[in-house]
Design a protein around this nucleic acid. Structure first.
Lengths: 243, 243
DNA sequence: TATTATTGTATCATTTTGTTACAATAATAA
DNA sequence: TTATTATTGTAACAAAATGATACAATAATA
């Protein structure tokens, strides 16, 4: 029996947390021309789950989401936004947690706070894949990136949560200019276009894309990048906020 | 002392509701070329509040929002969407509710469930002003429409909630084509343009507006409408979903 | 019957977007 | 050293969308 675990993560009263309310975060990264999300593998089950957590009684909900994001990636000052509240009564499923608890030698009472219905606030984050340091939490074996069309079996409604997060990302990519958050600080126009094409899942016209991005006046052109490829070296760009 | 009130609305345990979670609904209507919201005036205080409520333990959060909307307006099948979760710890203020309770002869204990911190899921609804039947709830004196630039003093962060709802409406008006929900079934092009101008708070070019709306292919042209004005009678239109 | 206000739409100018083309490289092969 | 190749940056033109103006078609009123 893991006393530390039970004390910290599965205390009997749920004291110190807002009851019945949770956070689930879809953390997007971009690598190998693929959009990926960070997933935890739950101990003693074959299920995966989104990084999530609970809200301390003296903590803003948005703060809690930043804390979760930091705990799983080590990152601060990251694009992070609410996108939906998952509040259907049918989404509740205590089985995986019960399994984990029992495997740890703890048989929870039926009315244990963690086994009750939870409403979850969905957040999505856009991070630089190369900067994030995936870190499992105490009830997980691992924390890893998964390509969006290569997702493992997920807990509860976490697959739907990812789906809705992707929809939101697609809808906001352009007019909120949030795509840059998925790239490293310096990037080529090709990098940016491949990102857009991956997220929107459609081909874009190169000349028009470049013209449009440059016309936005939010890109600073830096030195050229010698790629080692048999062709002209592309410029590097950096995102700069307007005014 | 109002026993019914205390039993139904301010029961000591909060039994039957999800704890710490509430719903606030910004119900928009359009009348006299003005965008209006439905507000309740709280008994025994000079404060106004958004229509809101709590979520039954066996009820989806979205269901609860529809129930609130129906209770205050008598309307079903209405455009209603989540737009933000208001979860800052600082938004909590138990004073108005305490005042109401005391005025009713009920002195609540400090740990009464209604006086604790609440996280609120914000919804906005778009309704036909002429169809809604404003109906106060049991802790309110009245339920009335208020013009957006003529709002009374509101409880807690309800003013910010309205502000954020308006931003969401403005951002979604065009690409989600939700404006029609604010008009009655049949309307003239002028009605529609005035609605757009009011929501977006800017003048639109009449010819271009008409051309664009007609090009969308979502308007059915009906008989002309004799307005009694000294000019050509405008057509009436009806919104029809595509495909 | 003329006047007035508004509607519906045509017309042309301007801006934005789609498409094609081509010069400018940076590596590799001949 | 000199082609060859792949990709980049941008020009040039076409097509589509939007802005701006104009005007004929009413429906009431004078």
């Amino acid at each position: 029996m893991d006393n530390e675990f039970i004390k910290q993560e599965m205390n009997v009263t749920g004291e110190g947390f807002l009851p019945g309310l949770a956070i689930d975060t879809v953390i997007f990264g971009f690598h190998d021309d693929e959009l990926k999300v960070l997933l935890l593998s739950y101990k003693h089950t074959d299920l995966y789950a989104l990084p999530g957590g609970f809200i301390h009684v003296d903590e803003d909900v948005n703060e809690a989401a930043r804390r979760v994001l930091f705990s799983r990636t080590g990152l601060i000052n990251i694009f992070l936004e609410q996108f939906y509240v998952f509040g259907d009564k049918s989404r509740h499923d205590a089985t995986p947690l019960k399994t984990i608890m029992k495997a740890r030698g703890f048989t929870p009472p039926e009315d244990h706070w963690l086994l009750k219905r939870f409403v979850s606030v969905g957040y999505y984050a856009l991070v630089d894949f190369t900067k994030a340091i995936p870190t499992p939490d105490s009830i997980s074996d691992s924390c890893d990136w998964f390509g969006l069309d290569n997702l493992p079996t997920l807990m509860q409604d976490h697959r739907q949560i990812i789906g809705k997060a992707l929809q939101t990302l697609q809808a906001n990519l352009d007019h909120k200019l949030i795509g840059f958050n998925l790239l490293s600080e310096n990037f080529t126009m090709g990098d940016l276009q491949r990102l857009y094409e991956t997220v929107l899942n459609k081909k874009l016209i190169r000349a028009a894309f470049q013209r449009k991005m440059l016309a936005l006046g939010i890109l600073e052109r830096l030195a050229k990048k010698w790629t080692g490829g048999a062709h002209k070296a592309p410029y590097l760009y950096r995102f700069v906020a307007r005014d």
